[in-house]
């Protein structure tokens, strides 16, 4: 269900009482409603579903968890290597 895509906020404006942002996805930008992410600022990434941002991507958490994932990967390569040598 629920396709949501990460995009970067380029600029934010108030349009008829709505918080509307220009959000970039790869090389594409689209107008996105930012009413649900009052904390998001230009430069932030948001997850966008049917034209609405539903969360601000937590850059620190993303970085931390990705580094963890990579560390697991490197560990696995070492372990995998050992397993191969011992087998």
């Amino acid at each position: 269900m629920c396709l949501a895509v990460p995009g970067k906020i380029l600029e934010i404006e108030d349009r008829d009482g709505n918080r509307v942002g220009k959000v970039q996805f790869g090389g594409v930008t689209r107008q996105v409603f930012l009413n649900f992410v009052p904390e998001a600022a230009a430069g932030d990434y948001v997850m966008v579903h049917v034209g609405f941002a539903i969360s601000r991507v937590d850059a620190e958490e993303a970085q931390r968890s990705y580094e963890l994932l990579q560390a697991m990967g490197m560990l696995e390569e070492e372990l995998g290597g050992e397993a191969e040598r011992t087998s």
Partner: peptide, 8 residues
């Protein structure tokens, strides 16, 4: 939709 779509 599910809860994801409801706010929109």
């Amino acid at each position: 939709g599910f809860e994801t779509t409801a706010p929109a």
